[in-house]
């Protein structure tokens, strides 16, 4: 497996750092090497936030993402700032409601309404990060779904496992729906 770079971006409080950690832990369960880094402003809520994951079956030297193979943008601001970095023919996943203006990129673009799904299907927008993870993993196959689920169970606060796993499932279901749509079109 070559080096894969993933950037999860949005604003503080959306749980992207946690999502990055879980994605990387899932990769470790799959026997891969993984490095997760983050950058954030002084705000605990709001402000720009990004969480980066590098996966490889070799040693990982440079720990940061330069040209992401997979980019998640949960806000318009994040999309505007990072879309241009996307690797040619990379995968761009945006929150379809939050990101209304799509940049011109040569990439596969998905626009699931992540935050909305979390609110409507799970009754809690806090788990939008897990919906996003489910969607990304089901769409790209960077890690196995089993590893993702066990990483989620281990990492999220006790008592919230069920909710978070349901959110992951919702993301997976949504990915399947997108795939079917792709085939039809």
């Amino acid at each position: 497996m070559k080096r894969i770079e993933i950037r999860l971006s949005g604003s503080g409080g959306q749980g992207l750092v946690l999502a990055g950690i879980i994605l990387a832990e899932a990769a470790v369960r799959d026997g891969l090497n993984a490095v997760q880094t983050q950058s954030y402003g002084p705000e605990a809520r709001g402000g720009a936030s990004k969480s980066e994951v590098v996966l490889s079956d070799l040693d990982i030297d440079y720990p940061k993402v330069i040209y992401p193979d997979i980019l998640l943008a949960m806000t318009q601001e994040a999309c505007d700032r990072y879309a241009a970095d996307l690797q040619r023919d990379g995968i761009l996943v945006v929150d379809g409601r939050m990101v209304v203006k799509l940049p011109a990129v040569q990439a596969r673009v998905y626009r699931p309404e992540i935050t909305n799904l979390a609110q409507e299907r799970l009754g809690n927008r806090v788990v939008a990060n897990m919906v996003a993870l489910g969607f990304i993993v089901a769409t790209t196959g960077v890690v196995s779904i089993d590893s993702l689920k066990s990483a989620v169970s281990d990492r999220v606060p006790r008592g919230t496992q069920e909710l978070n796993l349901k959110a992951v499932e919702a993301g997976i279901t949504e990915a399947v729906r997108w795939r079917e749509n792709e085939r039809e079109n």
């Binding site: 090497n33 993984a34 490095v35 997760q36 880094t37 983050q38």
Partner: peptide, 9 residues
């Protein structure tokens, strides 16, 4: 800061 906050296997 990079090494302090970075997570790796």
């Amino acid at each position: 800061e990079v090494i302090a906050h970075m997570r790796e296997r």
